[in-house]
Simulated scan of single mutants.
Amino acid sequence: MFEEPVRRRGMASLTPLIDVVFLLLIFFMLTTSFMQTQSLSVVTPAPSADELPTDARVVEIWLMGDGTLRLDGKPVERTALTASLREAIGERKDMTVTILAEKGSRTQALVAAVEAARQSGAKAVGTARVEKIRP
Score class of each variant (00 low, 15 high):
7 R>Y: 14
7 R>H: 13
9 R>S: 06
12 A>W: 10
15 T>H: 04
16 P>K: 06
19 D>K: 14
20 V>I: 10
22 F>I: 13
24 L>I: 11
29 M>A: 13
30 L>S: 15
30 L>A: 15
32 T>C: 08
33 S>N: 09
34 F>P: 07
35 M>E: 15
36 Q>E: 08
38 Q>I: 03
40 L>A: 03
40 L>P: 02
40 L>C: 04
40 L>V: 09
41 S>L: 11
42 V>S: 03
42 V>G: 03
43 V>Q: 14
45 P>A: 12
47 P>V: 04
47 P>E: 13
50 D>W: 00
50 D>I: 07
51 E>L: 14
52 L>N: 03
53 P>Y: 00
56 A>Q: 12
56 A>E: 11
58 V>N: 07
59 V>S: 03
65 G>W: 01
66 D>G: 05
67 G>R: 06
68 T>P: 08
69 L>G: 03
73 G>C: 06
74 K>G: 01
75 P>W: 00
76 V>W: 00
78 R>D: 09
78 R>E: 15
80 A>M: 01
81 L>G: 03
83 A>E: 09
83 A>R: 15
89 I>H: 05
89 I>D: 03
90 G>D: 06
93 K>M: 14
102 E>V: 05
102 E>Y: 04
102 E>G: 05
103 K>R: 14
104 G>Y: 00
106 R>T: 04
108 Q>A: 15
109 A>C: 04
109 A>V: 02
112 A>G: 04
112 A>I: 08
113 A>E: 05
113 A>M: 05
118 R>G: 04
